[in-house]
Simulated assay, not measured.
Amino acid sequence: MPPGGEELATWFYEGILGVPRVPKPPHLAVRGGCWFERGSLRIHLGVQDDFVPATKAHPAFTVLDLDRLEATITTNGLAVRRVDDPLEPDVLYVDDPFGNRIELRPTRGTEDKADYAEVVEDVARTAVGDRLADELAFVHELDRLKTVLRQSFVGEASRRENTAEHSWHVAVMAAVLSEHLEADVDLARVVLLLLVHDIVEIDAGDTGIYDDTSNGSKEEREEAAADRLYGLLPDDVGARLRDAWEEYEHGTTPEARAARVFDRLAPVLLNLSAGGIAWRRWGVSADRVREVVAPIGAGAPELGRFVDAALERAVADGLLPAGSSGLILP
């Protein structure tokens, strides 16, 4: 894309195509451009001074609801071209704001799956009632949490973990490590808080804890997500889960503080196992990491001592700079 096109790119790729913009690592962000990611889909736009749009070679994206996306595109004043091929009548082409050709085609087999989610709800509504149908609609929506990529990498550093994996991981960690908590807590409540605390990322996406820019809009995005997602449920169930989410966010109860212990501990363990890859991508120092993990020591002194010793070892082994060196590896 040409220089200065980041806002136009965000309007098109995030606002129209629905692929959230994610922060670039600091050492790449200085070059301009922007990244958009959803699940395994990654669109990385770089800046080129002598930019020429790609009108022949192009990416092709599969779309669950092609008709709906076509309507969104045309509503925003963009022209859509259908391929003149009787064998592929549903393939569309559209140009991004910079003239790059984009191909859009239906995801094979997923239309029926999407329709069948509605069938499941209809069967539940007829056989049991509206309450079960609404609960199953929410359960179906939860599956999307598996496509939300977090900033942390899995232990073998082969890929980024998704939010569903993270929620499960920290909940099990609480069950295993709760003996190290300083306060007596309701463990079942702690586990519930950990299971629901990131459901809003289905809509809001994951905001990296070191991403100062995106954290500015995090609260607003997550409040809107909570309104929609918990609003899918029957009123009493939705209120119960939203109360749990808000309890975690406010962090004022012993259970919320305990949940934060494990939520902050999990990325440390993954970074240590993955050679500090996420720390290096964000260019953070041991001092910054210690600020972020302070809730661990506050809620579980033994775990806090472990983390402090582990960070010292990470610095000694070159996984993490001790101070604000700005050293970032690609």
Rank of each mutant, 00 (worst) to 15 (best):
L104I: 09
R105P: 06
P106M: 05
P106G: 02
P106V: 03
T107V: 07
T107Q: 07
G109I: 05
G109F: 03
G109T: 04
T110Q: 08
E111Q: 09
E111G: 06
E111S: 06
D112Y: 13
D112W: 14
D115M: 12
A117C: 12
A117T: 08
E118W: 12
E118I: 09
E118H: 11
E118T: 09
V119S: 11
V119P: 03
V120P: 03
E121R: 10
T126F: 11
T126C: 08
T126V: 13
V128L: 07
G129C: 03
R131E: 10
R131A: 05
L132P: 00
D134Q: 13
E135N: 03
F138K: 10
V139M: 14
V139S: 09
H140L: 10
H140F: 05
H140Q: 12
L142K: 02
D143F: 11
D143A: 14
D143W: 13
D143T: 12
L145Y: 00
L145I: 06
T147I: 01
V148K: 00
V148H: 00
R150M: 15
S152G: 04
G155H: 02
E156T: 09
S158M: 11
S158H: 08
S158C: 10
S158K: 07
S158Y: 08
R159F: 13
R159T: 13
R159E: 15
R159A: 14
R159I: 11
R159K: 15
R160F: 05
R160I: 04
E161H: 00
E161G: 04
N162R: 08
N162P: 09
T163H: 03
A164N: 00
S167G: 06
W168A: 14
W168D: 07
W168G: 05
V170T: 02
V170Y: 00
A171H: 05
V172T: 13
V172I: 15
M173G: 03
M173K: 04
A174Y: 09
A174C: 13
A174F: 10
A175R: 15
A175T: 13
A175H: 13
L181G: 01
L181Q: 01
L181T: 03
E182V: 05
E182P: 01
A183F: 07
D184C: 08
D184I: 10
V185Q: 02
D186W: 11
D186Q: 12
D186C: 12
D186K: 09
L187I: 06
A188Q: 12
A188W: 08
A188R: 11
V190G: 00
V191A: 02
V191N: 00
L193R: 01
L193E: 01
L194V: 04
L194M: 05
L195E: 12
L195I: 11
L195M: 14
V196L: 05
D198Y: 02
D198P: 00
D198L: 02
V200M: 06
E201Q: 15
E201Y: 08
E201I: 04
D203M: 03
D203L: 04
A204E: 04
D206K: 01
D206S: 10
T207Q: 09
G208V: 06
I209V: 13
I209L: 08
I209P: 00
Y210M: 07
D212V: 14
D212T: 14
T213W: 14
T213D: 15
S214G: 11
S214M: 15
S214L: 15
S214Y: 14
N215C: 08
N215T: 07
N215S: 13
G216R: 09
G216S: 04
